[in-house]
């Protein structure tokens, strides 16, 4: 459950932001968790609730955006979308794919007071 340490890291990052951007409470957190990132959205939801309890993010809504996995296929020379790692190219079936997107794990935005 590395999502727990990531959620705890998020709280620290948001606490730092609260000093820089002068806010006291977070009402909503918008996360981007790419389909090919290292985070399971359900585990993140669970960890988020536990890690934010008693902090300035307590009770905040968590919104998770999940951009699809993007890859470049070297066999058919095309840019494709893949659901998960290990999938073949949807055009030609080759596994000569290099992932080009959908790996990010970011706090996109905060709705704050």
């Amino acid at each position: 459950m590395h999502e727990m340490s990531l959620a705890e890291g998020m709280v620290t990052a948001v606490q730092e932001q609260s000093k820089l951007q002068n806010f006291r409470h977070v009402k909503r957190v918008i996360l981007e968790i790419g389909a090919l990132s290292h985070v399971d959205p359900h585990a993140m939801e669970f960890s988020f609730e536990a890690a934010t309890r008693g902090t300035l993010m307590d009770g905040a809504d968590l919104e998770i955006l999940s951009p699809a996995g993007q890859a470049r296929c070297f066999a058919c020379d095309s840019d494709v979308t893949i659901e998960r790692r290990g999938d073949g190219c949807p055009n030609c079936g080759s596994h000569q794919l290099i992932v080009t997107g959908g790996e990010d794990m970011k706090i996109k935005a905060l709705e704050v007071v």
């Binding site: 620290t12 990052a13 932001q17 806010f23 996109k108 905060l110 704050v112 007071v113």
Partner: peptide, 16 residues
Amino acid sequence: SQTRLIEIEHDILSKN
């Protein structure tokens, strides 16, 4: 407004 939306684009793993 009371509530504002701030875009931070903070990578969750940035500290690590």
